[in-house]
Design a protein around this nucleic acid. Structure first.
Length: 489
RNA sequence: CGGGGCGUAGCGCAGCCCGGUUAGCGCAUCUGCUUUGGGAGCAGAGGGUCGCAGGUUCGAAUCCUGCCGCCCCGACCA
């Protein structure tokens, strides 16, 4: 067991917290429920951002930026949207401070805003109020815009990365001439999220549609990707919504079609957030610390020199430079940890804690033999190789690690996914932890009852769930498809 | 919003019940020497409005009152 990290078995949520803190990803700030994302954590987020941004642009989207503040009147235009968010909004009511008689700085009551401003919990309303000005004809469509931003949701209970009052995310908001096109966009973006989760985060996900009661406030259909964490709970890793004409109607956004008819615009919105950081941590990490997939690791290879004196360190420096030159040619990111203030054992432990996929250790012994010791983070395996050609070995190994941690996560999910045909069976599995595929009668009442009694919710109705005749585990009414249940974050 | 807990050095805590030397301990920090192939050892040093405001008392980290903040459990969570 690593110093300072509690084990997963001992206390899963403390283990998670310890990793976030000790791996230097983020920490709590002086602001309730809001975190400071530290450089190493932010570097991982930047990697995610970079790749997602690329994928968005490859599918024709452009970035733009809309205001942080939303006038209350905009916010209240779409009824179900308000219902969904009203209870967790930060509201700006004044625009000035003053010094009172006691010399304290207080809000100036005379500086009350005519109309309160909502700090965006999501941007549909401000964006659709803008789209009204941009869209007049079918020639103006589609609009394919993404925004990288921060949003605020005043959550009751917060957890680093998983649920914070302020978080970073991207939100795509698209406008289309037809329902079919908007639906296709909604699906396309879910596919992009799934591809990102599986190929980059090495985290298998289940694509599906949310039940009606779990839909986004204002959406006709909400699609999600759901991932299994190591405690068997589900984490919603991304959502893509088909908004129909709800926002177009609320903001009166119409266009003239080719045929000359005036029609409301069709919409989609989709987003992933810094919550993905939480998912990444909980999907792969172990009791020694973080385990990062090579494709998202800010540092893919760390090199630790082992030496007795300055002279030896100098010799190592020269050799290491030769190696790093080779790594550069293969586009491998690295760090030469030549700190003289820490000893090798400390460095080994620290880089394991930080999840660096590959570690090289080189000392006088290796210089003599022309070798280097290589350790991989995912399996803890150590092997000595010839320095000559090490860059090729590492290049291949990084791919292998990426692949291995995905397979490991997939295997874990498969081993913890079950079918239940009776409610008793269902309860037992949920109690233990894991995903359950079960028949459901499609009613909100049954869903509610299951949640009340077991704390499990319908995560989604998986797209790849085969059609089969069955009976709802609670009501016994007929059902055509199994849906995915789990306790969730 | 209900239930519980906590606030003492950068971090983690003891001391409080039962008021009384100069408020301790571990980690971290700094200095020196020895070390360096899996989280170093020894010696020394620095660091405190005891959450805030009142009160009781000869005397308050300790007792009383009020306030503030944070954490955990529950309810809530597109």
């Amino acid at each position: 067991m690593s110093k300072g990290i509690r084990s997963r078995q001992e206390d899963y949520s403390k283990w998670y917290n310890d990793i976030v803190i000790k791996a230097d990803l983020a920490e709590n700030s002086g602001v309730r429920g809001s975190m400071v994302i530290k450089p190493y954590g932010y570097a991982i987020w930047e990697k995610m951002k970079e790749q997602l941004d690329k994928m968005f642009k490859e599918t024709g989207h452009q970035n733009a930026y809309f205001p942080l503040f939303i006038p209350k009147s905009y916010f209240t235009k779409e009824a179900s949207h308000v219902d969904g968010f009203a209870k967790e909004c930060a509201v700006v009511t004044h625009y000035r401070l003053k010094t009172n008689e006691k010399g304290e700085i207080v809000v100036d009551e005379n500086a009350k805003l005519e109309e309160e401003l909502i700090v965006r919990p999501t941007s549909e309303t401000i964006i659709w109020s803008t789209y009204k000005k941009w869209i007049h004809s079918y020639r103006d469509l589609p609009i394919l815009i993404n925004q990288w931003a921060n949003v605020v949701r005043w959550e009751m209970r917060t957890r680093l990365f998983l649920r914070t009052a302020e978080f970073l995310w991207q939100e795509g908001h698209t406008a289309h001439a037809t329902a079919e096109e908007a639906i296709a966009e909604t699906k396309q973006m879910l596919d992009i999220y799934a591809e990102f989760a599986e190929k980059w985060m090495a985290m298998p996900v289940i694509k599906g549609a949310k039940s009606e009661s779990e839909r986004f406030a204002g959406a006709l259909d909400t699609l999600s990707i759901e991932a299994m964490m190591q405690d068997g709970k589900a984490l919603q890793a991304g959502t893509s919504h088909f908004l129909g004409q709800n926002f177009a109607k609320a903001f009166d956004v119409k266009f003239t079609s080719k045929e000359g008819n005036e029609e409301y615009v069709w919409a989609s919105s989709w987003g992933v957030s810094t919550r993905l950081m939480g998912a990444l941590i909980m999907a792969h990490s172990d009791d020694k610390g973080l385990v990062l997939p090579p494709k998202l690791a800010p540092i893919q290879v760390v090199i630790v020199p082992i030496y007795k004196n300055e002279e030896q360190l100098e010799t190592l420096r020269i050799k290491v430079t030769e190696i790093t030159e080779q790594l550069k040619t293969k586009d491998i990111s690295f760090k030469f940890d030549d700190r003289t203030t820490q000893r090798p054992g400390f460095k080994f432990a620290e880089w394991e804690l930080k999840g660096v996929p590959v570690r090289l250790a080189i000392g006088p012994r290796d210089i003599e033999n022309g070798t280097i010791e290589l350790a991989r983070r995912d399996t803890s395996e150590k092997k000595t190789y010839d320095i000559e050609g090490i860059e090729n070995i590492i290049k291949d190994l990084l791919c292998e690690i990426q692949d291995n941690i995905f397979k490991k996560a997939l295997k874990f999910r498969e081993e913890n996914t079950f079918k239940a045909d009776t409610y008793d069976e269902f309860k037992k599995i949920i109690e233990k932890g894991g995903f359950v595929l079960a028949h459901w009668d499609g009613t909100a009442e049954t869903e509610e009852k299951i949640q009340q009694e077991t704390k499990a919710t319908i995560r989604n109705i998986p797209f790849d769930s085969p059609e089969e005749e069955g009976k709802c585990i609670v009501s016994g009414k007929p059902s055509k498809k199994r849906v995915l249940f789990a306790k969730a974050y």
